[in-house]
Design a binder for these strands. Structure first.
Lengths: 225, 225, 225, 225
DNA sequence: TATGAATGAGGTTTCATTCAT
DNA sequence: AATGAATGAAACCTCATTCAT
């Protein structure tokens, strides 16, 4: 059994090395421009070996993206593993996602590239469901936390936690997309500090979901106050 | 003189035909998968002629996308060319964008493909600035309308209209992206009707931007009411 | 008839303008890299008009080359239109060819590009014979001058003037070809000054063709003296 | 170890096969007209494989040309590997070059195509230096042989061997170029047998480089005697 | 398991030339 | 005579993937 296990471990290790190589190449060149040759060279492996571990370039791309999901997942786990009250934890999640955007920009970009429905057709179903699983794990954290806020009487019980999560995500994600490509335009031409906007709009959205008692506990943060 | 003009018109007409062909191919296959051969066949022109009118496949892609922008722009113009009060017009814009998402899904998808920074490098600067111009024209409509709302005393004067526009856009766009690929998942697994969510969150965001007097005029629409 | 003539003149003038444009483009880019588009732009004419005056790009190329031949021809005419003795004139021709190489390098290069037999197939017969005619006119000057030297008793009567011309041409041309691309290599690595070599070998060849009486008249120029 | 070597050999063999195919196509069509498709078909390989072994069509062309250089080099080696006196060997070289011109005309033509400076820009530096190396090896044989003649007292010590080589080469090469394209013209119109001319002029040039003692040893060969 | 040579379809783009106006 | 839009063949080259070893 030891031999079996060691082989297993080695194989997993090799998969990781390939992902390392793919990651650096994809980050630099993007899916379209990156070539399997480059990845093979970066991995110090033959191209054939790559295909032993991943069915296609797209799968490899998703493999890297899943890493990005895991990073975000771990950051979310950490952000919610504190002794703080639930509402603070929810706020933490928002801050964490923004920190992810700043510190893992390349992964963030992969995410919205992944949105492209055209892309999906070229991917193996297994990888695809891995992705969806990772995605769901992340949503789950957010949704359950909001549910907890409801249970604890801080968030209005008439709110669907999934709805709430979507709204918060849509808001911050949408603003971050603009930040990614047009921050300067908004700053200089329109005089808008997008980071500020994200902060304020997030707070505002959250506020509107609180119960009256929760509102009383925390100082009301009105938009642009 | 007439001759010059007619040639001009014919040339413009040919450009339109090429765009028609490109549009149908890009809609079906996406940028990466589509080939200039297919587009040439669809346009019933030689491939060489395509390159007479557009410098590259990417430029052609942008040409189509600009059409999508113009459609949205026209819809926005129309939505705001009514006798309604400003607040209604703002609401109209939101509805219009959603209608655009429903009726021109392929264009909508082009927009977020365009976000990919990798893409930008392969495009001629002229086409690029055409795009940015089109983009700005659309934002301008929204921002100026919000400004008008402020001037008329319905929207809080402490709000930056561009900020406001970004927030509204981020919210609706983010939710529509989810709708595009995961509507069923949200409906069936999480029990969330994304269309409903978009409606409500938009209304809520708008509410929070109203002056007290405006709030009094319109019945308060509370979230999840 | 005046009208006829003016048209004729204008046509010729247009041909010249086209050649001017072609010349500048071919000089800069070479036959292969130059495009008819570039030439048309340089000529401020449409591409179609080019074909009205020249059957093909290759013909146009030859048209330019013929100009180069005419220049050389004129220089040869001038070099032999002096009062000097025949032997001096022959020497003048050699010097003139070298001056041509220096002052009209681009034409010189065209000449040996033209040598390529592959090239000939793509050229109209009319242009081809124009070229050969130009070529012959130049050879004629040299050959007749040598013949005159024979007649005057300076060059050995057992020499075929055409042979003599070929030898002199082959020598100088061969060295100039090396000068064109490898002058520095010969100078620095092999310590050979090609200009010097050409001068000396030419003189030497000439010497060996003189009659004894002619040798007595001119100081013997031995190789490397 | 054997495996490594066999692979190496096979790879070299494949390179040779590709060169064989390229050679036959280039000989027939010339660089410009030949296509990689034709070469691939001739090699019974895919086009992609061609590019695996040679970076570009131009490189492949040079690869063939280097073969031609090697052939000439070997012929020169052979021509100088006899027991004859040095002067005879020098004469052998001239005869050998002429034989090369006759028997390997296509390679000879490649050489002067290579002169085209336009050509050089499209070639990989590695191939370029291979070419120059081959070129130098050939010059080296000639130059060293002349040096030997000097050392042995047969060739005048005031002569630079490289100069001497250039002159001999320029003479024969220049005449051969004329032979290649205009032999009939010279024969029929001008009554000149270029082969004869080359023979005689070569001998004459050689003569003028001999020391007096060497001249005495060999019967004087005067031009056109 | 790992290799890497071979594939070959397909990509975009170019450009000499034609021809209707 | 002049135009210039249209052609379309062909060019070079790339690269994800396969497969014999």
């Amino acid at each position: 059994m030891g031999i079996q296990e060691r082989k297993e471990r080695e194989k997993e290790h090799r998969r990781e090395e390939i992902l390392n190589a793919a990651q650096s190449v994809f980050f630099e060149k993007g899916l379209q421009t990156a070539t399997m040759d480059e990845i093979a060279v970066a991995a110090e492996l033959s191209k054939g070996t790559l295909y032993l571990y991943y069915k296609s370039k797209e799968d490899l791309y998703l493999g890297v993206m899943i890493r990005g999901m895991e990073i975000l997942h771990n950051m979310f786990i950490e952000a919610t593993s504190t002794d703080e009250p639930t509402l603070s934890k929810i706020k933490n999640l928002g801050d964490t996602y923004y920190r992810y955007f700043q510190e893992h920009r390349n992964f963030f970009r992969m995410f919205y590239f992944f949105q492209n429905p055209q892309f999906h057709t070229q991917v193996s179903p297994e990888m695809m469901s891995s992705c969806q699983l990772g995605n769901q794990k992340i949503w789950k954290i957010v949704i359950e936390l909001i549910q907890q806020g409801i249970n604890e009487g801080d968030i209005r019980p008439d709110i669907n936690p999934a709805e709430c999560a979507v709204i918060l995500w849509a808001n911050s994600n949408g603003i971050m997309i603009r930040m990614d490509t047009q921050q300067d335009y908004f700053k200089n031409i329109l005089g808008v500090d997008l980071e500020d906007v994200m902060q304020k709009s997030g707070t505002m959205l959250l506020q509107s979901m609180l119960t009256d008692s929760a509102k009383r506990k925390t100082p009301t943060i009105s938009y642009a106050s």
